[in-house]
Write a protein that binds this DNA or RNA. Structure first.
Length: 278
DNA sequence: ATGCCGGACCAGGTCCGA
């Protein structure tokens, strides 16, 4: 199974190149972020013509997550348990949830398309929200991997953290003043992994970024960030046989500022002729 | 660098992103 994630930064603007890439790369399941539309506005036709069905979670022009899959999707969830909400000008629990998470099960694999809050600035209430979001996501992963350790689980999406200095090639993103690289955000990301996930791409793709700012010639200068990940529980991560970051998708007309990240997962199939009797 | 791009709203100006 070939599984990918892509922050498309408006699916209505990017539908052509998104479907073209999926067909070219033989993608079975794509997790999208920042679709920036409601389900009734989603351009479904090109996906369906290419043989994909859709699961869409969008509330307005902000955020929005979706899946396109060639295989049937089950158990669709519009939030993970305990997922925080956020309301501008208000703090505290029980605020309305934004469209930042979508869960589906495909071929026995639990998949999430996640758009982690940006944080906006160090000290901004939105940063408190971001860190709380990480806390609650971590708690979900702990519970899930403890209760169902045999179920392959993958968190895919835009995590809005560059976990190490090697993941930050943007000279304007500086530890001490910038979001995405602060010790608190990096600790939150590390704690999420400690809950039972592995970065499935890094071991196979040791360098490269997944995002370049539109401004300041960041892409031609290759001054980007690696903030888009496919994080897998043990049974998922052990089944990853290939991984790639598709830098070329940042080129050409009207690209997203993010590029897709793809893994090949070879999970044991019931019809395999493996020597199970051993 | 707090908005130099780019998208959504929807008609000129604001909000948002990392």
């Amino acid at each position: 199974m070939r599984i990918a994630t892509w922050n498309v930064n408006s699916i209505r603007t990017r539908v052509g190149r998104t479907v073209d890439w999926m067909v070219r790369e033989d993608v079975d399941v794509l997790a999208m972020q920042e679709i920036k539309c409601k389900p009734e506005q989603f351009p479904t036709e090109l996906f369906e013509e290419a043989g994909y069905e859709l699961a869409i979670h969008g509330l307005n022009q902000w955020n929005g997550v979706a899946f396109a899959s060639r295989l049937p999707m089950h158990d669709v969830a519009h939030a993970f348990p305990g997922m925080p909400g956020f309301l501008k000008g208000a703090e505290g629990p029980d605020q309305p949830q934004e469209a930042r998470a979508l869960g589906v099960t495909v071929d026995g694999v639990r998949l999430w398309s996640l758009y982690v809050p940006n944080g906006r600035a160090l000290g901004d209430p939105h940063m408190v929200y971001k860190l709380d979001w990480y806390d609650k996501l971590t708690e979900y992963v702990r519970t899930e991997t403890h209760e169902r350790p045999e179920v392959p689980l993958a968190l895919m999406g835009d995590f809005n953290v560059a976990p190490t200095d090697a993941d930050n090639g943007d000279p304007s993103v500086v530890v001490g003043t910038s979001t995405h690289v602060s010790p608190e955000e990096r600790a939150a990301f590390a704690t999420l992994l400690d809950a039972g996930l592995a970065d499935t791409v890094r071991p196979l793709v040791p360098t490269g970024y997944t995002y370049w700012d539109y401004k300041q010639l960041r892409f031609p200068r290759n001054e980007g960030l690696r903030i888009d990940f496919i994080l897998g529980s043990a049974p998922f991560a052990e089944a990853v046989t290939e991984a790639s970051i598709h830098r070329d998708e940042r080129k050409g007309d009207a690209p997203s500022d993010h590029v897709p990240v793809l893994v090949q997962v070879d999970l044991g199939e019931a019809d395999d002729d493996l020597p199970m009797f051993l």
